[in-house]
Design a protein around this nucleic acid. Structure first.
Length: 434
RNA sequence: GGAGGGGUUCCCGAGUGGCCAAAGGGAUCAGACUGUAAAUCUGACGCGAAAGCUUCGGUGGUUCGAAUCCACCCCCCUCCA
């Protein structure tokens, strides 16, 4: 364990802001330190936005420190206003409790619970806030906060100043709750460092102040940069929405594809953020790619590493199997068993209706299968020969006779159709087994 | 409680009686070019195969005709008490 960790984190561009920067290296070098990062249940799964902090916990653990993963059973009931443009809708306590369970399991996959002194712990802030009464909260905790200072925080400024949106007292209080978490963890576990995304800076510094005021504990804070893409679009979204960590929401295949599609300008930075590959190795890869003609190798390394981290080796193999089958034009070499496997691996698939109950149009069939949000898009694609069925282009003329197109004669192994829309959207249709 | 401002299609934002399924930009989707990139160009972009159907906070009304006018209601913001 050593502040060599900090050097590596800096080289990766993972440190955005630090509170107590002068003493931090020394503190880290002084023994097994305890740190925490919070994850609020805002859905039943985390998405890749939480990946950097999750991996960060692991980086610290690998460096010999003890990570606490906090699941925000309490803060999730309130909602963090930080840099949010609008007040959020409250969810019921029952719903949140369900999400807490899911997130606890998810978070647990990224840290090691059997690492001696550095063994991870999952905590829930509901445990120390549930039974606190209002007056205690206001007198013992609230008294340490200056509203004057709170409204100055950049994270809530736009909500306070901007016309068209306000902030409820409930959300405004969030900062105090999270600050209290840090103070409490410093007391309970000797936790001396909180990490989080750059949007958490205000909440983290609030906690640092509170820990000192309530318990005289000197604690530290680190934030990680917001992950951005060079083209300015939001990181973590695909055409089908958010990229989730839960394989049920985002299949390992889709997850793998997401990373594979990383832009060249972003990929080396992402390798540093999202993998444990040494920086030197990433630099070598970058130089090698510069020499190469055509497609760089970095994307496939990134996709492989991150998919393995999140979905394990099995998930990775499944993702690669589908990718290989679809993007190498060798559909005809696949066996019936292979198709079944692709289905199990998470290739989007649906059962084909009987010829008698077949939808009247292909646009309808493909839309219902979720390949496109509206028939218009399918229509557009058909008109441009961008819809392929088992490799054969379909045209606008085929639209009104799906039953004539999707016949057993045209199927692979009598019942499989791989329909491709555009360059990357694939869907497996399967008929009844013979 | 008082005064004022505002709610338009995914987002921003025009439109203030017919020419409006609603300008423009962004996002998104598809094509060309490529490397399942980037940049650029092209097309699509409420729903529908089409005929046609449904939109401009809500409900009623005026009118041959409403996103646009009227009434009431709901929500948001600003200032004052």
């Amino acid at each position: 364990m050593s502040s060599a960790l900090l050097t590596d984190l800096r080289a990766r561009g993972l440190i955005f802001q630090a509170a107590g920067e002068e003493q931090l290296p020394e503190w880290l070098d002084g023994g097994v330190r305890t740190l925490y990062c919070g994850f609020d249940p805002t859905a039943d799964s985390l998405h890749i936005g939480s990946l950097v902090p999750l991996l960060m916990l692991r980086r610290f653990q690998l460096a010999g420190h003890r990570p606490l993963a906090l699941v925000g059973g309490a803060t999730g009931l309130i909602g963090d206003p930080s840099f949010k443009a609008q007040e959020r809708q409250l969810n019921t306590p029952e719903v949140i409790a369900g999400w807490v369970d899911k997130i606890r399991q998810q978070v647990s996959r990224f840290v090691d619970f059997d690492a001696g002194e550095a063994s991870a712990i999952v905590v829930n802030n509901l445990d120390w806030t549930r039974d606190m009464d209002v007056l205690t909260f206001l007198r013992d905790v609230g008294k340490h906060f200056s509203v004057n200072a709170m409204i100055q925080k950049e994270s809530v400024k736009q909500r306070i100043e901007r016309e068209g949106s306000g902030i409820s007292f409930t959300e405004f209080t969030y900062m105090i709750l999270q600050s209290y978490d840090f103070a409490e963890l410093s007391k309970r576990y000797g936790c001396g460092l909180q990490i989080g995304g750059s949007d958490q800076w205000g909440n983290i510094t609030g906690g640092i102040d509170l820990a000192r005021r309530m318990y005289g504990n000197q604690v530290y804070g680190l934030t990680m940069p917001l992950i951005t893409k060079a083209d300015g679009t939001k990181f973590g979204k695909t055409e089908s929405g958010t990229v989730w960590l839960d394989p049920v929401r985002t299949s390992p295949y889709a997850f793998y594809q997401f990373w594979l599609n990383t832009a060249d300008v972003d990929v080396y930075r992402f390798l540093k953020y999202f993998t444990f590959l040494p920086v030197a190795e990433i630099d070598v890869l970058e130089r090698a790619d510069e020499q190469r003609q055509g497609r760089p190798e970095a994307q496939s390394v990134l996709a492989r590493e991150v998919t393995r981290l999140v979905h394990g080796n099995e998930g990775l193999v499944a993702a690669q199997r589908i990718t290989e089958a679809l993007f190498s034009d060798n559909l005809s070499t696949l066996s019936a068993a292979d198709f079944e496997q692709l289905r199990l691996d998470g290739l989007p698939a649906s059962e084909l209706p009987e010829a008698a109950s077949m939808p009247a149009t292909l646009t309808q069939l493909l839309t219902e299968a979720g390949m496109a949000p509206s028939g218009k898009q399918v229509k557009d694609a058909l008109a441009r020969n961008a819809v392929l069925c088992n490799g054969r282009p379909l045209g606008w003329g085929d639209n009104e006779q799906p039953a004539a197109v999707l016949t057993p004669d045209n199927a692979l192994h009598g019942r499989y159709f791989v329909v491709r829309l555009g360059k990357k959207k694939y869907h497996l249709f399967y008929g009844k087994a013979a």
